[in-house]
C-alpha cells in the first residue's frame, strides 16, 4: 500500500496537480475525488502549474479552399497563412483543473450554469457541483460547452486556440498514414488518430493528445458545407479540400460543423492558448 501511495503522489506531481494531504489511512486515497469534491474549495488550492508548449511561428494551410473556384478544381490549394508564435497547453484541461475552476467561479457550477451557455449534459458524470464522482481527475474534462471552455481559459488569463492555431499544432496531415502503423489506435476508438497528433516540428515538444475532440475559438468559422450555410460536410466537399485523402481532417471538420456553442459532449474537451509577447 505504501508503494501505491507513492505512485499516486508521483502521478499527481507529474500532472502538476496539488498534492492531497494524506488522510489517516491509505485506503481513503482511493476516494480522493470524493475528498476533493466534498470540499471546502480551500483544500483544492488555487495555484496553477499548467504546462504549456511554445508553438513557433509557422505556416498553416487551411483545409478548405475559400474561393468558389475550388468547387470546380481550378484552384489547386488554399494559400498558406502565417500563424504567429503562441503557447498552447501541452495537454487537454483535466477534470481536476476544471474542478478548481468551478470552485473559484460558482457561476460555472452545474447547478448554476445558464442553459444558453451549457446544455443539460454539462458535466455529466459529476456527483454534484464539486464532486467528480468516480471519474479520475487527471483525465481530460469533457461534457463542457464552448462558453464554459472559453470562461475557463479567460480565468487563467488565456484563451481558446483559434482553428488555425489548433490545426497548426495538432492537425498533422500525415495522421492517417501514421495511424495505419500505430497499433495502439486499434484498441478502443479506431478514429482516435483524427482527434489530434502533433505537427512534425512539435513531435518532441511534450504536446500530447488523449483521444478527445477539442474546442477551438472559431470552431464554426469554416463554411465547411454548402453555400446554404448548414455547416455540414458532404460528398462534394472532397473537391473543396486541399487533400481529399486526409480523412482525419474530414472527420475533424465534420465533427466541428455539427456543434453549437452550448453543446456539452462526452468526447469533447479543450485546452487553452496564450499569446506570446514579442
Amino acid at each position: 500500500m505504501q508503494i501505491r501511495w507513492l505512485a499516486v503522489q508521483l502521478a499527481l506531481w507529474c500532472a502538476g496537480l496539488p498534492q492531497v494531504v494524506p488522510a489517516a489511512t491509505p485506503t481513503t486515497l482511493l476516494t480522493q475525488a470524493t475528498v476533493l469534491g466534498a470540499t471546502d474549495c480551500a483544500a483544492v488550492g488555487s495555484a496553477l502549474t499548467t504546462k504549456t508548449v511554445l508553438v513557433p511561428a509557422g505556416k498553416y494551410r487551411p483545409f478548405f479552399k475559400n474561393s468558389l473556384d475550388g468547387n470546380d478544381g481550378k484552384q489547386a490549394l488554399a494559400p498558406q497563412i502565417e500563424v504567429p508564435a503562441f503557447r498552447l497547453d501541452a495537454a487537454a484541461v483535466t477534470r481536476g483543473e476544471y474542478l478548481r475552476f468551478v470552485c473559484q467561479h460558482p457561476a460555472w457550477r452545474r447547478s448554476n450554469v445558464k442553459a444558453i451557455f451549457a446544455e443539460e449534459t454539462y458535466l455529466t458524470g459529476w456527483s454534484n457541483d464539486l464532486d467528480l464522482g468516480t471519474q479520475p481527475q487527471d483525465q481530460p474534462v469533457t461534457h463542457v460547452s464552448w462558453f464554459a471552455a472559453r470562461a475557463f481559459c479567460a480565468a487563467r488569463n488565456a484563451r481558446l486556440p483559434t482553428l488555425a492555431e489548433w490545426e497548426r499544432a495538432g492537425g498533422d496531415a500525415g495522421a492517417v498514414a501514421a495511424a495505419q502503423r500505430d497499433e495502439t489506435s486499434a484498441a478502443g476508438n479506431p478514429f482516435r488518430f483524427a482527434m489530434g497528433r502533433p505537427a512534425t516540428d512539435l513531435r518532441h515538444s511534450g504536446l500530447t493528445f488523449a483521444g478527445v475532440w477539442e474546442w477551438t475559438a472559431d470552431f464554426n468559422s469554416v463554411a465547411a458545407g454548402n453555400a446554404g450555410g448548414s455547416g455540414s460536410l458532404f460528398c462534394g466537399d472532397g473537391f473543396r479540400s486541399n487533400d481529399a485523402r486526409d480523412y482525419a481532417a474530414f472527420l475533424r471538420y465534420s465533427f466541428r460543423s455539427s456543434l453549437r456553442g452550448n453543446y456539452s459532449l462526452k468526447n469533447l474537451g479543450f485546452r487553452c492558448a496564450e499569446d506570446v509577447r514579442p
Binding site: T121, G225, N226, G228, S230, S232, F234, F255, S257, S258, L259, Y263, L265, K266, N267
Partner: peptide, 11 residues
C-alpha cells in the same frame, strides 16, 4: 435529409 439530420454525438 442529409443536412437536416446532421447531428453531433449525444444529440
Amino acid at each position: 435529409g442529409g443536412e437536416a439530420s446532421f447531428v453531433a454525438p449525444g444529440h
